[in-house]
Nucleic acid binder design. Structure first.
Length: 459
RNA sequence: GCGUCGGUGGUAGAGUGGUCUAUUACAACAGACUGUAAAUCUGUCGCCCCCUGGGCUCCGAUGGUUCGAAUCCAUCCCGACGCA
């Protein structure tokens, strides 16, 4: 089975960093120029932004989540829209029809199947999309639930947490993790719904089935994202299980064929695991890179799992060095400014991350000179603009205005902050792309980081 | 003028003899957040210090009762309501 509409073209390899490259991911619904940052729209919405704003800030694709959309509103409804891109209106701009199609007229007996196209209406063409498999929820609703453990921590934070998690004799304490909302076995994972507590079973096969209905151009194998606190022994067994699940995903993907909601062939990415252990990352990358089931291989690779901030470079590198170089690599859930330089330097093509939008809703704003908390009283009368970058569509709001919007809890606060932060990040990664094309990657890194972080990341 | 009720930390509002620097909420001030359980969560919030502890001050004002008062009594000041 060939996937003719999906392929990855390497436009230029960096002459400075041997693993870095600029490229283009061609998908059935458009091209993604890489390196690129993909905004996260978990529930088929990038929180607080509409698609007009997404386009305005230069978003090339949107990544949604299988677990969330399966629970609400359900894959059937999304398939009835022709996939989540159409449902959320993430489509190419077309003139609006003279009279908008009535949703009621299109309903059949089941109330679903002949629903006309969502978003801006008939004739529109969806734009590129990703879906995550639900593998991250194995961690966030499982080992991490109610513990305050994040998948990325500094090594200092990690050793502190490890101490809290073990008693004097070095044994693991049994604590709040009894509340876990996810239970793993060899066949799959049983989740409790975060909306109503009901039980839901995910397996590699069911994740593929749901993702075929969601209809993203790029989707991920169902993996087990582990905790950074997990032992090496556990990382090994989770990695090996992820590999067995990957093979099942490939088989099911082959069996399912093209997406039933878009009619297009989707690209399946495996997820490399192995925690912060270089030799495990290497093994995982090799196994998944060579994996072939029923004559098909993975179209690309995600780097998943947990590692410390300090280990990110080695972890990513030991994976990418061992992956087929002509296939795209996505660094799952990573996205603070410095991370893009690390990721791209070691061969990452795409990123997604909730951080820009989450911290935005909480009042944190990326600026050329570092991240600020716009809620701080010092911004109350600050008439300077959010950004010195005049190309930013949201640069010319004053800090005092955004401070006021947050203080008065206006909805627009999170919207402007999210749009601003996403533009900042999308632009940063796009600038990194240009720096590879022009062979001045390290110059950009030094310029950006010295302004943003001071001397923290400079050698 | 008489009567009744009431005056608590930035605000609202608990507490009505010792466990009270005083519940709670809001406001204020900071912090955290990396494949979204998150427009969420955490901390501080009378003053001072040798700050995992200690000292001082405090519930309209003053005086008193008591071993001990935000809490009881007296007087005064202020407010609301009722009656003249």
């Amino acid at each position: 089975m060939s996937n003719t509409k999906f392929n990855f073209e390497i436009v230029k390899r960096s002459e400075e960093a041997s693993l870095a490259r600029a490229g283009i991911i061609h998908t059935p619904h458009g091209d993604i120029l890489t390196p690129a940052f993909i905004p996260v729209g978990t529930k088929a919405t990038v929180k607080s932004l509409d698609v007009g704003m997404l386009k305005k800030i230069g978003s090339l694709a949107v990544l949604a989540n299988t677990y969330h959309l399966h629970l609400q509103p359900g894959a059937e409804l999304i398939a009835a829209h022709g996939g989540f891109a159409r449902m959320m209106g993430w489509v190419e701009d077309k003139p609006l029809p003279a009279s908008p199609p009535s949703l009621r007229e299109g309903l059949d007996a089941s109330g679903l199947s002949s629903l006309p196209l969502g978003g801006v209406g008939e004739g529109s063409v969806p734009l590129p999309t990703f879906t995550d498999s639900g593998g991250f929820q194995v961690f966030s609703l499982g080992a991490a639930f109610d513990t305050g453990v994040s998948k990325i921590a500094t090594s200092a934070e990690l050793s502190k947490k490890q101490k809290e998690e073990t008693d004097d004799k070095g044994n693991k304490k049994i604590k709040a993790t009894n509340n876990q909302m996810a239970k793993i076995d060899e066949e799959g994972v049983t989740f409790k719904s975060f909306t109503d507590g009901s039980s839901h079973r995910f397996t590699p096969e069911s994740s593929m089935q749901v993702q075929h209905k969601l209809g993203a151009d790029i989707f991920f194998a169902f993996d087990e994202c582990t905790s950074p606190l997990a032992s090496r022994e556990y990382q090994v067994s989770a990695m090996e299980r992820t590999h067995r699940w990957a093979a099942r995903c490939l088989g099911e993907h082959k069996r399912l064929g093209a997406s039933e909601s878009t009619g297009e062939q989707q690209a399946l990415f495996a997820v490399v695991q192995g925690g912060a252990y270089e030799e495990l990352r290497k093994e995982s990358a090799r196994v998944l890179g060579e994996m072939s089931v029923d004559g098909i291989e993975f179209d690309g690779f995600g780097i998943g799992g947990s590692f410390t901030k300090e280990d990110m470079d080695k972890t990513v590198r030991s994976a990418t060095e061992n992956l087929p170089e002509y296939k795209p690599r996505h660094l799952l859930g990573i996205g603070e400014p410095i991370d893009f330089f690390i990721g791209v330097e070691y061969g990452i093509d795409t990123f997604d991350c909730v951080s820009p939008t989450r911290v935005a809703r909480h009042g944190n704003i990326y600026t050329e000179n570092g991240r600020i908390n716009i809620l701080n009283s010092k911004y109350k009368k600050d008439l300077s603009y959010l950004s010195e970058d005049k190309s930013s569509p949201y640069h010319n709001y004053t800090k005092a205005y955004l401070h006021h919007l947050f203080k008065s809890e206006e909805m627009l606060a999170g919207t402007i902050a999210s749009a601003h932060n996403l533009y900042f990040i999308i632009k940063l990664v796009a600038d990194i792309r240009v720096s590879i094309l022009e062979d001045n990657f390290y110059k950009l890194k030094e310029e950006f980081c010295s302004k943003y972080y001071g001397d923290k990341y400079l050698k």
